[in-house]
């Protein structure tokens, strides 16, 4: 994983990373990925991916409204609010 890749992934993940860190991470992530290449030795053709460990089946909930919940409490955690809205830096369309 080179610096360019690290910077590209960092952009995707919205992580500000300075140049020095980027170089260090590139080296570390390269070593990690190199180590992870050992998986290539395992033949997995035809093996179904296991997104979950068990044979779980999804269950649903009835379409019912719960009593009004803690909207005020949730907004209390928001750093900036305005007239009941969450205020964020200007989005450029």
């Amino acid at each position: 994983m080179d610096r360019t890749t690290v910077d590209w992934v960092a952009r995707l993940a919205r992580l500000e990373i300075d140049e020095r860190t980027s170089a260090r991470l590139a080296a570390q992530l390269s070593a990690i990925l190199e180590y992870f290449r050992s998986l290539e030795q395992l033949a997995t053709a035809g093996i179904a991916p296991a997104a979950h460990p068990g044979d779980l089946r999804g269950s649903t909930r009835p379409d019912e409204e719960a009593a009004a919940s803690a909207a005020a409490q949730l907004l209390a955690n928001v750093p900036r609010t305005r007239d009941g809205f969450i205020q964020v830096p200007r989005i450029i369309e």
């Binding site: 900036r80 305005r82 009941g84 809205f85 969450i86 205020q87 964020v88 200007r90 989005i91 369309e93």
Partner: peptide, 14 residues
């Protein structure tokens, strides 16, 4: 999202 004209912020309603 709302973008009030002339302001430097946007507003979010969830």
């Amino acid at each position: 999202t709302l973008h009030p004209p002339g302001e430097n912020y946007s507003l979010v309603d969830l």
